[in-house]
């Protein structure tokens, strides 16, 4: 199964749409499976990053009997130092974003911890691409 969602950057009122849709889809497919909460958390955090940092973004989800594969591709400022961005507590979020309780520098670490495989690539001035894979086992 294949799904695609657009993410509107800068709009916190629509944040979580893709992850909420994914949760509904997976509950219908898998019932009460422990993989659901993990991938939903990973996708939600990815949505936060796009809304808080990028100009626009796209989520591409592929589900088969073996695994769930999620790609989040954004057009945005990109990440200069990925290793630093992965460190818990490091954040470049704005004051406004922090006031809402985001921007604590835990997002990428949360995504990695909730994936079986996690890939990140980024080009400064172009955008960032995440791949999240979770196995159903």
């Amino acid at each position: 199964m294949h799904f695609e969602f657009e993410i509107e950057a800068g709009d916190f009122s629509k944040l979580g749409f893709a992850s909420s849709q994914l949760k509904t889809i997976l509950k219908q497919l898998l019932g009460d499976h422990k993989v659901i909460r993990r991938v939903v958390v990973a996708l939600y955090e990815s949505e936060v990053n796009v809304v808080a940092h990028a100009y626009s973004g796209k989520v591409i989800i592929d589900i088969n009997t073996e695994k769930i594969e999620i790609e989040i591709d954004d057009k945005g400022p990109g990440i200069e130092d990925i290793q630093l961005a992965m460190e818990e507590g490091y954040s470049t979020a704005s004051e406004k974003v922090r006031e809402m309780g985001f921007g604590a520098g835990m997002g990428l670490a949360n995504i990695k911890n909730n994936s079986d495989e996690f890939y990140i690539s980024s080009e400064v001035g172009v955008g960032t691409n995440l791949k999240i894979i979770a196995y159903l086992k």
Binding site: R37, V41, Y44, E45, V48, M100, G101, F102, A104, G105, M106, G107, A109, N110, N113
Partner: peptide
């Protein structure tokens, strides 16, 4: 917690 990422990462069902 008032940090949403903290809740996302650590709160339990």
């Amino acid at each position: 917690s008032d940090l949403l990422s903290d809740v996302m990462g650590n709160a339990k069902e």
